[in-house]
Computed example of a mutant assay.
Amino acid sequence: MMTATRPAYFTKYENLNFRRDDETGILEVRMHTNNGPFVFTGQTHREFPNAFYDISSDRDNRVVILTGTGDSWMAQIDFNSLGDVTNPREWDKTFWEGKKVLQNLLDIEVPMISAVNGPALLHTEYILTTDIILASDNATFQDMPHLNAGIVPGDGVHVLWPLVLGPSRGRYFLLTQETLTAQQAYELGVVNEVLPASRLMERAWELARQLAKQPTLTLRYTRVALTQRIKRLVNEGIGYGLAMEGITATDLRNAQQ
Protein backbone atom coordinates (compact mmCIF):
# COMPACT_ATOMS: atom_id res chain seq x y z
CA MET A 1 0.00 0.00 0.00
CA MET A 2 1.18 3.53 -0.75
CA THR A 3 1.58 5.66 2.35
CA ALA A 4 1.89 9.38 2.93
CA THR A 5 5.54 9.09 4.02
CA ARG A 6 7.55 11.43 1.84
CA PRO A 7 11.27 11.93 2.48
CA ALA A 8 12.53 15.43 1.67
CA TYR A 9 14.25 14.36 -1.53
CA PHE A 10 10.93 13.19 -3.01
CA THR A 11 10.13 16.81 -3.88
CA LYS A 12 13.68 18.06 -4.35
CA TYR A 13 14.24 17.24 -8.02
CA GLU A 14 12.20 18.87 -10.77
CA ASN A 15 12.66 16.04 -13.26
CA LEU A 16 12.16 13.05 -11.00
CA ASN A 17 8.91 11.71 -9.61
CA PHE A 18 9.11 9.34 -6.64
CA ARG A 19 6.53 6.98 -5.22
CA ARG A 20 7.17 4.32 -2.62
CA ASP A 21 5.20 1.44 -1.21
CA ASP A 22 6.33 1.69 2.39
CA GLU A 23 5.01 -1.76 3.21
CA THR A 24 7.49 -3.40 0.83
CA GLY A 25 10.09 -0.62 0.45
CA ILE A 26 9.73 -0.56 -3.34
CA LEU A 27 10.65 2.85 -4.75
CA GLU A 28 9.62 3.85 -8.28
CA VAL A 29 11.73 6.64 -9.80
CA ARG A 30 10.23 8.16 -12.93
CA MET A 31 12.16 10.62 -15.11
CA HIS A 32 10.01 13.33 -16.70
CA THR A 33 9.92 16.87 -18.06
CA ASN A 34 6.76 18.73 -17.04
CA ASN A 35 5.25 15.29 -16.40
CA GLY A 36 5.81 14.34 -20.05
CA PRO A 37 8.62 12.56 -21.92
CA PHE A 38 11.98 13.28 -20.35
CA VAL A 39 14.39 15.78 -21.94
CA PHE A 40 17.98 15.60 -20.67
CA THR A 41 19.42 19.00 -19.73
CA GLY A 42 22.33 20.59 -17.94
CA GLN A 43 20.15 20.77 -14.84
CA THR A 44 19.50 17.04 -14.83
CA HIS A 45 23.21 16.40 -15.41
CA ARG A 46 23.89 18.42 -12.25
CA GLU A 47 21.09 17.01 -10.14
CA PHE A 48 21.06 13.29 -10.93
CA PRO A 49 24.28 12.50 -9.01
CA ASN A 50 22.71 14.04 -5.89
CA ALA A 51 19.39 12.30 -6.51
CA PHE A 52 20.98 8.86 -6.80
CA TYR A 53 23.03 9.58 -3.69
CA ASP A 54 19.84 10.45 -1.79
CA ILE A 55 18.22 7.21 -2.97
CA SER A 56 21.26 5.19 -1.92
CA SER A 57 21.31 6.84 1.52
CA ASP A 58 17.64 6.10 2.27
CA ARG A 59 17.62 2.72 3.97
CA ASP A 60 13.86 2.48 3.71
CA ASN A 61 14.36 1.72 0.01
CA ARG A 62 14.53 -2.05 -0.54
CA VAL A 63 14.02 -2.32 -4.32
CA VAL A 64 14.27 0.51 -6.89
CA ILE A 65 12.49 0.75 -10.26
CA LEU A 66 13.87 3.30 -12.74
CA THR A 67 11.67 4.33 -15.67
CA GLY A 68 10.68 7.18 -17.96
CA THR A 69 7.45 8.91 -18.89
CA GLY A 70 5.11 8.47 -21.82
CA ASP A 71 6.46 6.69 -24.86
CA SER A 72 10.19 7.35 -24.36
CA TRP A 73 12.76 6.48 -21.72
CA MET A 74 15.31 9.15 -22.71
CA ALA A 75 15.28 10.29 -26.31
CA GLN A 76 15.80 14.06 -26.26
CA ILE A 77 18.63 16.32 -25.13
CA ASP A 78 18.90 20.11 -24.87
CA PHE A 79 22.52 20.58 -25.93
CA ASN A 80 22.50 24.35 -25.33
CA SER A 81 21.62 23.85 -21.67
CA LEU A 82 24.84 21.90 -21.12
CA GLY A 83 26.87 25.12 -21.29
CA ASP A 84 30.11 25.78 -23.14
CA VAL A 85 31.65 22.31 -23.26
CA THR A 86 34.62 23.73 -25.18
CA ASN A 87 35.69 25.55 -21.99
CA PRO A 88 37.92 23.26 -19.85
CA ARG A 89 36.62 24.78 -16.61
CA GLU A 90 33.05 24.04 -17.69
CA TRP A 91 34.04 20.55 -18.74
CA ASP A 92 35.54 19.98 -15.30
CA LYS A 93 32.01 20.18 -13.87
CA THR A 94 30.78 17.69 -16.46
CA PHE A 95 33.73 15.43 -15.64
CA TRP A 96 32.87 15.36 -11.94
CA GLU A 97 29.14 14.93 -12.47
CA GLY A 98 29.66 12.21 -15.07
CA LYS A 99 31.79 10.19 -12.67
CA LYS A 100 29.51 10.64 -9.70
CA VAL A 101 26.26 9.76 -11.46
CA LEU A 102 27.46 6.23 -12.29
CA GLN A 103 29.26 5.76 -8.99
CA ASN A 104 26.17 6.84 -7.06
CA LEU A 105 23.90 4.61 -9.15
CA LEU A 106 26.12 1.65 -8.36
CA ASP A 107 26.14 2.68 -4.69
CA ILE A 108 22.38 2.10 -4.52
CA GLU A 109 22.80 -1.11 -2.54
CA VAL A 110 19.42 -2.68 -3.24
CA PRO A 111 18.23 -4.49 -6.39
CA MET A 112 17.43 -2.16 -9.28
CA ILE A 113 15.02 -2.75 -12.13
CA SER A 114 15.02 -0.70 -15.34
CA ALA A 115 11.63 -0.41 -17.04
CA VAL A 116 12.57 0.96 -20.46
CA ASN A 117 9.30 2.41 -21.71
CA GLY A 118 10.44 3.56 -25.15
CA PRO A 119 13.50 4.79 -27.03
CA ALA A 120 16.64 4.98 -24.91
CA LEU A 121 18.98 7.03 -27.07
CA LEU A 122 21.28 8.61 -24.52
CA HIS A 123 22.70 7.80 -21.11
CA THR A 124 21.90 4.15 -21.64
CA GLU A 125 24.74 3.47 -19.23
CA TYR A 126 22.23 4.18 -16.45
CA ILE A 127 20.20 1.20 -17.60
CA LEU A 128 23.23 -1.07 -17.68
CA THR A 129 24.00 -0.43 -14.00
CA THR A 130 20.70 -2.05 -13.03
CA ASP A 131 20.14 -5.72 -12.26
CA ILE A 132 16.98 -6.50 -14.23
CA ILE A 133 16.19 -4.79 -17.54
CA LEU A 134 12.65 -4.87 -18.89
CA ALA A 135 11.75 -3.21 -22.17
CA SER A 136 8.48 -2.33 -23.83
CA ASP A 137 8.14 -3.67 -27.36
CA ASN A 138 8.52 -0.13 -28.75
CA ALA A 139 11.85 0.45 -26.97
CA THR A 140 15.05 1.01 -28.91
CA PHE A 141 18.66 1.43 -27.76
CA GLN A 142 21.28 3.68 -29.31
CA ASP A 143 24.18 5.96 -28.36
CA MET A 144 22.84 8.95 -30.27
CA PRO A 145 24.52 12.11 -28.93
CA HIS A 146 28.28 11.57 -28.81
CA LEU A 147 29.37 11.07 -32.41
CA ASN A 148 26.60 13.38 -33.58
CA ALA A 149 28.31 16.09 -31.53
CA GLY A 150 31.80 15.03 -32.61
CA ILE A 151 32.93 13.84 -29.19
CA VAL A 152 34.17 10.56 -27.72
CA PRO A 153 31.49 8.28 -26.20
CA GLY A 154 33.32 8.25 -22.88
CA ASP A 155 30.66 8.75 -20.20
CA GLY A 156 30.42 5.08 -19.24
CA VAL A 157 28.89 3.67 -22.42
CA HIS A 158 32.46 2.81 -23.49
CA VAL A 159 32.74 0.54 -20.44
CA LEU A 160 29.28 -0.96 -20.12
CA TRP A 161 28.19 -1.66 -23.70
CA PRO A 162 31.32 -3.71 -24.53
CA LEU A 163 30.77 -5.49 -21.21
CA VAL A 164 27.21 -6.59 -22.02
CA LEU A 165 27.58 -7.09 -25.79
CA GLY A 166 31.17 -8.31 -25.85
CA PRO A 167 34.18 -6.19 -26.88
CA SER A 168 33.79 -6.49 -30.66
CA ARG A 169 30.01 -6.03 -30.84
CA GLY A 170 30.08 -3.31 -28.18
CA ARG A 171 32.58 -1.21 -30.11
CA TYR A 172 30.57 -1.69 -33.30
CA PHE A 173 27.42 -0.55 -31.51
CA LEU A 174 29.08 2.69 -30.37
CA LEU A 175 31.06 3.47 -33.53
CA THR A 176 28.17 2.92 -35.95
CA GLN A 177 25.52 4.41 -33.65
CA GLU A 178 23.59 1.22 -34.26
CA THR A 179 19.95 1.17 -33.16
CA LEU A 180 18.84 -2.04 -31.45
CA THR A 181 15.18 -2.90 -31.20
CA ALA A 182 13.90 -4.31 -27.94
CA GLN A 183 13.82 -7.78 -29.50
CA GLN A 184 17.38 -7.49 -30.79
CA ALA A 185 18.52 -6.30 -27.36
CA TYR A 186 16.78 -9.32 -25.84
CA GLU A 187 18.46 -11.72 -28.27
CA LEU A 188 21.85 -10.13 -27.52
CA GLY A 189 21.37 -10.56 -23.77
CA VAL A 190 21.00 -6.87 -22.91
CA VAL A 191 17.29 -7.02 -22.07
CA ASN A 192 15.75 -9.69 -19.85
CA GLU A 193 12.12 -9.41 -20.95
CA VAL A 194 10.24 -7.65 -23.75
CA LEU A 195 6.66 -6.72 -22.91
CA PRO A 196 3.73 -4.81 -24.36
CA ALA A 197 3.89 -1.20 -23.19
CA SER A 198 0.67 -1.71 -21.24
CA ARG A 199 2.30 -4.51 -19.20
CA LEU A 200 5.70 -2.98 -18.56
CA MET A 201 5.19 -1.31 -15.18
CA GLU A 202 2.92 -4.06 -13.94
CA ARG A 203 5.69 -6.58 -14.61
CA ALA A 204 8.33 -4.34 -13.01
CA TRP A 205 6.25 -4.17 -9.84
CA GLU A 206 5.61 -7.93 -9.93
CA LEU A 207 9.35 -8.59 -9.96
CA ALA A 208 9.98 -5.92 -7.34
CA ARG A 209 7.41 -7.50 -5.00
CA GLN A 210 8.96 -10.91 -5.58
CA LEU A 211 12.37 -9.54 -4.60
CA ALA A 212 10.95 -7.61 -1.64
CA LYS A 213 9.97 -10.90 0.03
CA GLN A 214 13.66 -11.45 0.77
CA PRO A 215 15.25 -10.19 4.01
CA THR A 216 16.57 -6.66 3.73
CA LEU A 217 20.21 -7.60 4.22
CA THR A 218 19.90 -10.32 1.60
CA LEU A 219 18.64 -7.72 -0.86
CA ARG A 220 21.39 -5.26 -0.01
CA TYR A 221 24.30 -7.68 -0.04
CA THR A 222 23.13 -9.46 -3.19
CA ARG A 223 23.25 -6.14 -5.01
CA VAL A 224 26.70 -5.48 -3.54
CA ALA A 225 27.96 -8.89 -4.67
CA LEU A 226 26.50 -8.62 -8.16
CA THR A 227 27.88 -5.13 -8.84
CA GLN A 228 31.38 -5.58 -7.42
CA ARG A 229 33.03 -6.24 -10.81
CA ILE A 230 30.96 -3.59 -12.58
CA LYS A 231 32.00 -1.02 -9.96
CA ARG A 232 35.66 -1.86 -10.51
CA LEU A 233 35.38 -1.55 -14.29
CA VAL A 234 33.45 1.71 -14.08
CA ASN A 235 35.88 3.22 -11.59
CA GLU A 236 38.81 2.21 -13.80
CA GLY A 237 37.31 3.54 -17.01
CA ILE A 238 34.97 6.43 -16.32
CA GLY A 239 37.54 9.13 -15.53
CA TYR A 240 39.72 8.19 -18.49
CA GLY A 241 36.74 8.08 -20.84
CA LEU A 242 35.43 11.46 -19.71
CA ALA A 243 38.90 12.95 -20.07
CA MET A 244 39.04 11.75 -23.70
CA GLU A 245 35.53 13.08 -24.24
CA GLY A 246 36.58 16.42 -22.75
CA ILE A 247 39.57 16.75 -25.07
CA THR A 248 37.35 16.28 -28.09
CA ALA A 249 34.76 18.67 -26.63
CA THR A 250 37.35 21.41 -26.20
CA ASP A 251 38.62 20.73 -29.74
CA LEU A 252 35.18 21.62 -31.06
CA ARG A 253 36.17 25.28 -30.60
CA ASN A 254 39.00 24.82 -33.13
CA ALA A 255 36.69 22.97 -35.50
CA GLN A 256 34.24 25.87 -35.39
CA GLN A 257 36.89 28.50 -36.24
Score class of each variant (00 low, 15 high):
M1K: 14
A4N: 15
A4D: 15
T5S: 13
R6T: 13
T11E: 12
K12F: 00
Y13D: 00
E14G: 03
E14N: 07
D21L: 09
D21K: 05
G25N: 08
I26Q: 13
L27F: 09
L27G: 06
R30E: 11
H32P: 08
H32E: 11
G36D: 15
P37Y: 05
F38E: 09
V39P: 00
V39S: 06
G42N: 03
T44R: 01
T44E: 13
E47C: 04
E47S: 06
A51E: 04
F52C: 01
F52M: 05
F52D: 01
D54A: 12
D54N: 08
I55S: 05
D58K: 15
R59I: 06
V63Y: 12
T67E: 14
T67S: 12
G68A: 13
D71T: 15
D71P: 12
M74G: 01
D78S: 06
S81K: 02
L82R: 09
L82A: 07
D84G: 02
T86R: 06
R89W: 04
E90L: 03
D92I: 03
W96I: 01
W96Q: 04
G98L: 04
K99N: 07
K100G: 01
V101P: 02
N104W: 02
L105Y: 00
L106C: 03
L106V: 08
I108G: 09
E109R: 15
E109F: 11
P111K: 14
M112V: 09
S114K: 05
S114W: 04
N117A: 14
N117H: 09
G118F: 04
G118S: 04
G118P: 03
P119T: 12
A120S: 13
L122R: 02
H123S: 08
H123G: 01
T124L: 12
E125F: 03
Y126D: 05
I127W: 06
T130G: 06
D131S: 14
I133K: 13
I133H: 10
L134K: 10
A135L: 10
A139I: 11
T140E: 12
M144D: 13
P145C: 07
G150I: 02
G150C: 06
V152A: 00
P153E: 03
G154I: 00
D155N: 00
V157H: 00
H158L: 01
L160A: 07
L160W: 07
W161K: 03
W161M: 12
P162G: 04
L163G: 03
L163I: 10
L165I: 05
P167I: 10
R169C: 02
G170C: 06
Q177R: 12
Q177E: 13
L180F: 11
T181D: 08
Q183G: 02
V190M: 13
V190A: 14
V191M: 10
V191C: 10
N192S: 15
L195V: 07
L195R: 11
P196Q: 08
P196A: 08
A197F: 04
A197E: 10
S198Q: 14
M201A: 09
M201E: 06
E206D: 14
E206G: 00
L207I: 15
R209W: 07
Q210K: 14
L211V: 11
A212V: 10
K213T: 10
K213Y: 01
Q214P: 00
T216V: 07
T216E: 06
L219I: 02
L226K: 11
I230L: 13
K231T: 07
L233E: 10
E236R: 13
E236K: 14
I238Y: 02
Y240V: 03
G241C: 08
E245Y: 00
D251T: 00
R253A: 14
Q257S: 12
Q257C: 03
